[in-house]
């Protein structure tokens, strides 16, 4: 069934080929399925902790897909599984991290799940205190400017984190020096249990950009092509020396904050169900189906491939060796 012709060509208008949008879809699905597997592993007692990306894969993948991971850098936050996969980590890398194995490319088993970072993937190592990565991304962008290099740095955070001083200090610094950095706020409406209206008094986090002298853009995170478009604009601005952009993607966290949270005490099942109906992956799937790009057969083959990949990755990570206990003492300083 075909819909409006103008709507159907949206991805082509953005310069995206059919293969590219399918690849985006596959990455979103991969993030979702890896995440779902993580919960299974947690609930069956195999991994102690999960912090989830579910509901946010769409804007994450769209944002990362607008970048060039061979040149650009990401300073993601702990939910950014979609970004990490789009920047080249494999499900195997992610499960090695979840199982805290020696081969974990993010931390060698040192950090909690969701604390990504690997130089070869152009992903800066992150920590648990929120927003500290924002000035780091600004410093990375400063390095690009000082050395005359063209890479752009993406940094993401939740709307709750936009209340931290480091958000303000980082944005302000980047605005003053017109640095090639993109501040990407994934507004999922909850900072653990505290809803948006108890976090910020302004209508949108993006409204804050005016105070830093650069554009703030609000985008429907469930419309991944629109996320891609505003990211492309921001990247162009950054590469042209026009400075930073603050993008606020309106999204939703479909799971509790983490495997140790119970979201039933602070939001209703109806609200979550409603959000599931608008889930970016579902919306994008419909778009691809209507565009005639995603057939049922294609969908099945993508899913089968991912299941196989995730099974293999889980098994590999489960059987991989732990770091030696004594390695606790390594890498405090350079050798």
């Amino acid at each position: 069934m075909k819909g409006d012709t103008k709507l159907l060509s949206r991805h082509q208008e953005l310069g995206l080929t059919d293969d590219q949008v399918l690849r985006m879809y596959e990455l979103m699905l991969s993030a979702r399925m890896v995440d779902e597997r993580m919960w299974l592993l947690n609930r069956s007692g195999k991994i102690p902790f999960v912090v989830s990306c579910q509901g946010q894969e769409g804007p994450q993948v769209a944002a990362a897909f607008a970048m060039d991971p061979s040149v650009d850098y990401a300073a993601p936050y702990y939910r950014d599984l979609g970004v990490v996969l789009a920047f080249g980590q494999t499900p195997r890398d992610v499960f090695l991290h979840m199982f805290a194995r020696a081969e974990d490319p993010n931390s060698g088993g040192r950090q909690m799940p969701g604390h990504y970072g690997s130089k070869k993937h152009h992903i800066l190592s992150g920590s648990s205190p929120v927003s500290t990565q924002i000035p780091h991304a600004v410093g990375m962008a400063l390095a690009a400017k000082m050395r005359g290099e063209s890479f752009v740095t993406y940094v993401s955070f939740g709307e709750g984190s936009s209340n931290q001083g480091d958000f303000h200090e980082g944005c302000n610094f980047a605005g003053v020096h017109k640095l090639p950095v993109i501040f990407f706020c994934e507004n999922n409406r909850y900072a653990i249990s505290v809803p948006l209206q108890k976090q910020v008094a302004c209508e949108h986090v993006a409204d804050r950009a005016i105070g830093y002298g650069f554009p703030g853009v609000v985008v429907d995170g469930n419309d991944v092509l629109e996320v891609y478009r505003v990211m492309k604009d921001a990247i162009l601005r950054a590469r042209n020396g026009q400075g930073p952009t603050l993008i606020e993607a309106m999204t939703y966290r479909l799971t509790p904050h983490s495997s140790d949270d119970d979201d039933r005490v602070y939001r209703t099942k109806e609200e979550v169900d409603e959000a599931k109906r608008n889930d970016a992956i579902a919306v994008f799937r419909t778009y691809l189906q209507n565009a005639g790009i995603l057939t049922e057969q294609r969908e099945t083959s993508i899913k089968n491939k991912l299941v196989e990949q995730i099974n293999e990755a889980t098994e590999y990570a489960q059987n991989a060796i732990d770091p030696s206990p004594e390695s606790t003492l390594l890498h405090v300083y350079a050798n």
């Binding site: 800066l124 924002i134 000035p135 780091h136 991304a137 410093g139 690009a144 480091d166 303000h168 610094f173």
Partner: peptide
């Protein structure tokens, strides 16, 4: 730099990472 110490150190950390 702007008058903001966490920003100064945080930006320096990012620059050092690169």
């Amino acid at each position: 730099t702007p008058l903001a110490e966490s920003g100064i150190v945080g930006v320096a950390i990012g620059a050092a990472a690169m």
